[in-house]
Amino acid sequence: MTNQTTGGQGGPTASLVLYHAWASSASRKVRMCLHEKGLEFEAKIVDLNKFEHHQDWYKKLNPSGIVPALMIDGVPLVESNFINEYLDETYPAPPLRPTDPMLLHDMRLWCKYIDDTCLPAIQKHNWMHHFHPMAREWSDEELERRLDAIPTQNRKHVWYRMARDPYTDEELEAALDILRDMLDRIEARVAKTGFVTGDAYSLSDIAAAPYVIRTEELRPEEVSAAKRPALAPWWQAIKARPAYKAAHMEPFNEQCWSGWTPPS
């Protein structure tokens, strides 16, 4: 377990405890939002390598068995997009959502697109790198035991593939194409207004950040100024934000291991 706090601000007084994993894209989104708000919180690591997210104690916090979960005075909030909207509603400074209803709708559609389309794409690469070498060694009995502890059919299917039917090179390249399309969409948006949604930094930018950094790790040329001249300065500005740095998005290939701690 890792404890972490950051300087607080005014607003409602609540006890915030974040259950998260360092390399989890959804956890990274929530950490960014918490730090943008300057909120004090306790951070507890859920070790995915030890399958703590599939243990009964954690599934009482998040029945889906995925990270993160944010405890607000002992009440668990789940789903990173919903958590971040709660934080922006409850702690409105600085604002991270548009006030214009059409832009708010656009922000929500963008966050849904990231979760529905980009998450499965990045997951293929992350899991093949980290979980496939472990899962392929499981016996049929151990695989059945692991699958029985997973509460959702979608995640059962992904874990089965890690163990017995790994993603092909063609599937991995198709996943990269989805991420390239994401970068193209960001390029078009920031070329017009400077940000993903409207003319201000928002939860849309936060939602994209974990996927852009992982794509940069996989294919650095895709975020270059030569390839995407509008995205490149936007991305450098995102990475320069204090909240981005405080959220710790060090390389996935380092953070995915048990015991990783932020550099001092």
Score class of each variant (00 low, 15 high):
M1C: 10
M1G: 13
T2H: 11
T6C: 03
G7L: 11
Q9M: 00
A14T: 11
L18E: 02
W22L: 07
S24W: 06
S27W: 06
R28Q: 14
C33W: 02
E36V: 00
G38N: 07
F41N: 01
F41L: 06
D47C: 09
H54Y: 14
K59Q: 13
N62V: 08
G65L: 07
V67C: 09
P68R: 10
V75Y: 10
E79N: 14
I83T: 03
I83F: 07
L87P: 04
A93R: 02
L96C: 02
D106M: 05
C111P: 01
K112H: 11
T117N: 02
C118H: 06
A121G: 08
I122L: 15
Q123N: 09
H129L: 11
H130M: 11
F131E: 01
P133A: 11
P133N: 15
E144D: 13
R145G: 09
L147N: 07
I150M: 04
I150G: 02
D165V: 12
T168Y: 10
E171N: 10
E171K: 03
D184N: 15
V190P: 06
T193Y: 08
F195E: 02
Y201A: 01
S202Q: 00
S202N: 03
L203T: 01
S204T: 02
D205W: 01
A207K: 03
A208H: 03
A209L: 15
Y211A: 06
V212D: 05
I213A: 06
T215K: 02
E217F: 09
L218E: 06
L218K: 06
R219V: 15
R219D: 12
V223L: 15
V223Q: 02
A226C: 03
K227G: 09
A232S: 10
P233E: 09
W234F: 13
W235P: 03
I238N: 00
I238E: 00
K239Y: 10
K239T: 12
R241C: 08
P242H: 04
A243E: 09
M249E: 08
M249Y: 01
N253R: 15
S258D: 13
S258N: 13
W260K: 08
T261D: 11
T261G: 07
P262H: 11
S264Q: 11
